[in-house]
Amino acid sequence: MSSPLSHINAAGEANMVDVSDKQVSQRSAIAEGYIYMSAAALTAIADQTNAKGDVLATARIAGIQAAKQTAQLIPLCHPLALSKVAVDFQIEADKGRIRIESLCKLAGKTGVEMEALTACSVAALTLFDMCKAADPAMRIDGIRVLLKEGGKTGRWQA
Rank of each mutant, 00 (worst) to 15 (best):
V17P: 00
T126L: 12
V19K: 01
A158T: 09
D88M: 03
E13H: 03
N50G: 03
V24Y: 13
E115H: 09
V55H: 06
Q157R: 09
A41H: 05
I98L: 11
C104V: 15
A116Q: 10
D129P: 08
K52F: 00
E13S: 02
S102E: 03
A66V: 01
V24S: 12
N50D: 09
A46N: 12
K22H: 09
E13C: 00
L56T: 06
I35M: 09
A124L: 05
A62R: 12
T43K: 10
V112F: 04
K132F: 05
H78E: 06
M16C: 07
G111E: 01
A39V: 05
C104N: 06
C120M: 04
M138H: 10
G142R: 10
G154I: 12
L127E: 02
G150K: 07
G111D: 01
R97D: 12
A93R: 09
K109Q: 15
G108S: 10
A137S: 13
M138V: 13
I74C: 14
C131K: 08
E92G: 00
K22P: 03
Q26F: 14
V112D: 02
F128H: 11
A44P: 00
S38G: 08
K109N: 07
S6N: 00
D141P: 01
D47C: 00
G12L: 09
Q26G: 11
A137W: 03
A158K: 13
E149L: 03
A86Q: 15
E149F: 01
V55D: 06
H78I: 07
P75H: 07
S6R: 00
C104I: 08
A134K: 02
D21M: 06
A62H: 13
A119C: 10
D94G: 05
G154T: 13
G33W: 01
M130D: 05
Q26N: 12
M16K: 13
S3C: 15
D88A: 10
A31W: 01
